Computed example of a mutant assay.
Amino acid sequence: MNKKSVFLFWAAMDFLYVLGFLYFNLSRGRIPLYDDVLSFAQVNLQFGENLLTLFFVGSMLLTISIPVTMWMLFRQHPWARFVAYVQVPFRLCFSVPSLSFIPWVISLFQLKQALIMIFILFVSEILKVISLYKVDVRQKEGR
């Protein structure tokens, strides 16, 4: 596989995530991100305030960064790989697989075993990192 096809594949996966995110929110009459901020502001933050805030901010940063990464991968921007690598721990923490169709497959097969879902999430991220790394190595070797 060449760099362009790998980057376009992962850009398409991010695009699929963005479409799903928008559909999920708009079909419920919610304004994406805005209603999330309003809901968070209404939460009683007495217990675990700092941790909850940290999780919310991390989740929002990931959600906002995915369309940015999508655009960077689509344009084959030199920093796209770096941004995608930085997203990996956030994707793992918030269970947002890079293979964006995975949640639909899980719901289709009604998988409920947490261990299997965690395994699939890790495999998704490993595949992304390896594929992006390999095209970088091949490019530097002149292949």
Rank of each mutant, 00 (worst) to 15 (best):
I31L: 14
F21L: 05
N50F: 13
V6L: 00
L51E: 14
L115A: 12
F109V: 11
D14E: 10
M13I: 01
P89L: 12
R30H: 13
C93M: 14
L62W: 02
R75F: 09
W79M: 11
F47C: 01
R28S: 15
F15D: 09
P89V: 10
Y133I: 07
L121M: 09
F109S: 03
F7M: 08
D36K: 06
L62S: 07
I130D: 11
D35R: 03
L115E: 14
V88T: 13
A12E: 08
F122G: 01
L127G: 15
G58N: 06
P89T: 10
M60H: 04
Q42S: 15
W104C: 06
L115F: 10
Q76A: 13
L45D: 04
S65C: 03
E49W: 11
V129D: 02
Y17R: 08
K112C: 01
F109T: 13
Q46W: 05
A80N: 01
D36M: 11
I120S: 10
R138L: 14
L108P: 02
L16H: 05
I31H: 05
T63L: 12
P32F: 12
I66Q: 05
K128M: 15
I130C: 10
F94H: 06
V57T: 10
H77E: 07
I130K: 12
L54K: 07
P67Y: 08
N2F: 08
K134Y: 12
F47M: 10
I116H: 07
F119N: 12
F90E: 00
E141I: 01
I106D: 14
F24W: 12
W10E: 00
R143M: 13
N25V: 03
E141P: 00
L22I: 13
L61M: 13
K3T: 08
I106Y: 04
V88D: 07
M60F: 03
R138N: 15
A80T: 07
A41L: 15
Y34Q: 04
I66C: 03
L61I: 13
A11T: 02
Q110D: 11
R91E: 09
R28Q: 13
K112E: 14
Y23G: 01
Q46I: 14
D136F: 04
F55W: 11
W10F: 15
W10S: 08
P78C: 01
A41Q: 15
D36V: 02
F47I: 15
E49K: 12
V137C: 00
M1R: 07
H77P: 09
M60G: 00
R91Q: 14
Y23R: 08
L127D: 09
P89H: 09
D36I: 06
V37W: 12
V137E: 14
P32S: 09
K112Y: 05
F55Q: 04
M117R: 07
V137K: 13
S39W: 06
V105H: 00
K4E: 13
I102V: 15
L73I: 06
V88K: 01
F55V: 10
F122I: 15
V18T: 10
G20E: 05
L73C: 03
A114G: 14
L99T: 09
I118Q: 12
R28D: 06
D36R: 11
E125C: 03
G48F: 08
